[in-house]
Every structure is written in C-alpha cells, then in structure tokens.
Nucleic acid binder design. Sequence first.
DNA 1: GTCTATACGAAGATAGAC
DNA 2: GTCTATCTTCGTATAGAC
Lengths: 210, 210
Amino acid sequence: MGSGSADSSSPSASAPVTAGAAARGPRERMVIHAADLIGRDGVAATSIGDVIAASSAPRGSIYHHFPQGKTQLMVEAVRYAGDFIATRIGSLHSHTAAEAVADIGGLWRRMLINSDYEYGCPVLAGGLARRAEPEVAAVADEVLTQWAELVSARLVVEGVDHGRAGSLANLIIAAIEGAVGLCQTRRTVEPLDKVIAELSALCEAAVVGP
Amino acid sequence: MGSGSADSSSPSASAPVTAGAAARGPRERMVIHAADLIGRDGVAATSIGDVIAASSAPRGSIYHHFPQGKTQLMVEAVRYAGDFIATRIGSLHSHTAAEAVADIGGLWRRMLINSDYEYGCPVLAGGLARRAEPEVAAVADEVLTQWAELVSARLVVEGVDHGRAGSLANLIIAAIEGAVGLCQTRRTVEPLDKVIAELSALCEAAVVGP
DNA sequence: GTCTATACGAAGATAGAC
DNA sequence: GTCTATCTTCGTATAGAC
C-alpha cells in the first residue's frame, strides 16, 4: 500500500508497540495501529489502507468513524501516542531526577528493540509533517508542550531549581527524541544509552543539595 | 505533486537553504533541491516531480542522470546534505568547544528561520525512512558516524577528555537533531536556543583545566 | 540530453446498496 | 456499520522519437 510500508499488510500483523490494554472496538484499534505505523514510517508514508490492514479493521467504515479522513486519523493517533508517553511520565516510580530520566530512556529502549528499531516517536513524526498536515503538527506541538511541563514539574519535585528545570526538560526531550531517531537510523541502542547516561549525570548535578 | 508538498510547484521557487555556490548543471541542481525538499517534507513525501519543479530541471532526463530513479536521487541528496554540514563542522573558526557548539547551533538557527521553520535535517529524515528506503538510511547512518567523529575530534582538540568526547559528541548531535525537530513542530527557535545554552555550558565544564 | 506518451499501480475520498 | 464499486489524482517508471 503505502510506499513506505515494508510489509505491514502481511497476514500476521504483530501487536503495536504501544498496545497496553486490549482495544475494544475497531475504531480504537485503528487509532492505536495508526500511531504505531506513524512511528515506523511517518505520516506521509502511512496510508489508510496500511492502518486497515494492520488493525484488521473493516474497510467500509473508515469515513464513518473518521469523517475527516486521514487527517483526523493521524491527529487522533498522535494524540494517543502523546498520552501514552505522558501517562508513563506521570506514573514514574523513580525517586530522583536522574532515575526518572533513566526510566523514560528504558521505555524507549524497549520499544526500539521490540520493534527491531523500526518504531520511533509518532509525535515527532507528526510534527515533521507540518507542511502536508498542519493539523497533525498542531497536535504534536500541544503534546510536546505537555511533555515539557510534565518533565519540568517532575524535575522541580526532585529538587531541581525552578529556573533551570524548564531548560533541562527541553534538553531532555530534544536529546531523547534525537537519540531515538539516531537509534532507528543506526539500528543500535548506543546513541540512546549514551544520551541517557549524560542526561542522568546532568540531572544529578542540577539537584540542589538539601 | 507530492501529498507532502505545500507549494513547491509555485512559479517562483525560492533558493534551497543549503545552496552555497551556484550549481552548474541540472543534475547538481536536482540533488541540491532534493536535499532541500527532504529536509522540509521527508523522503516519502518528496516526489521526483517535486524535485523537477523546484529545480527547474528537464523532465525527460531524470532516468538518464539517475538510472536507479528516486532512490538514487534521495541517496545523493542525503549525502550532499551530510557533506554540507560536515564541511561547516570542519571549518569552524571558534576557539573553544562551547563556541563551536554555539556556531553549529547558529547555523541551524539561520536555516530554520530562513525557511520559516520548514527546513529540518535531511539526514535524520533519510534515516527515519529506513523501512521504505533502506539504502537512503544506510547513507544517513554513514553521515551520522562521520559527524560524530568530526565533533568528537574537535572536542578533543579543544581540551575535552578522550573518553568523554565520544559520549558528548553523541549528545550534541542527538540534542541538536531533536531540537531542530522541535523547532519545526513548534515554529520557534526556543528549543534550539535552550539546547545550545545547556550544551555549551556542558562543554565548558568538560574541558580539562590547563 | 531532453521530449512526449503511456503503462501501471496506489491512495484519498464518495456514492449507494445492504 | 459495513460492503462494494467507482472517480480522480498522483507517482514511478519505461519506451521510443528527436
């Protein structure tokens, strides 16, 4: 289907990387699989046909569930992927800022390896598609803002100075996003591992002593 | 043409962001404009027709110049974009590691603003297209390795410890790549500016005293 | 080297039956 | 809600003339 899909239309579709609880209806499955495909191939290379094939959804009801077609599907998928990560950031068990960063890094590490380095960040992919799909990029923008606030707040809780937290959160998000892209390109977790190590050390140093 | 091109086929095509010296032949123009379009729309959303329109190249000789079609054009474009940045890294006038990082940041800052936040990194875009275009991603991998070596060597020259330089170079590349993506998504240079500030400080701290 | 014409397939979207 | 056409546009690639 899409020029960018390797074999997403193969009979045995594997479960999407972000699939937590089993989705109930076809509509929800479509959104989840759309997010998965966007993370792998990007917005432009993900066709509606790809999503249908991957989610085993009925062909005839796409425009019933998503009246605005592909754009709406992509928008909801990026939102879903954003919420997925936001939830993880919000429910981190770690007790220091350095640990929290390492935990998020570990999450991405697993997703990269589980997908054989095919799956990257659907939110970044959505943002990069701004020319063709401005509405999708707008959602990506919102998600990124939310993430930055979540990370920043967390850093403050762990003892990082208010003024520094915003700048550090921005670096953490940018560096992890970039590292995930490098890992996809190079098919190794090395870039991410190195980035997490540097970031963790930086967080430790940024915590004000008691 | 491409579903991802906003108006690259408009009559007055603007000069590509990476255009240094004027290109001689149509072939070279095609490669340069292909790199430009990949940076804006990604590999999948960049069609051969888009490149022809942007570079005012003759339609009839694409497969004469690029026998392997789109893949070859994308491969050469990513290589071109990689060499463009590599050259800049290699000819930095800065005298400290922190300054060098700030200079590279300034280069990206200009390209983002000059393109109204449309132009991002073609090399990262090439790497993210691995599923559809493995050969393009392979070149992106090579370029990324070259960049890392260049940055690392430069850090060592500026006084950063050998063991640390590799890790720091990786962070610098990942963070800048990620930040550029964030800037494209959010239509601001803020993410990049903040990242450069943090990175510069980190570089200063990493330089061993005389 | 460059042109036109054309084959072929994929993708988004709609209409109307069930 | 879901299905099956069907329309239209686009994109890659090739063939053959000039």
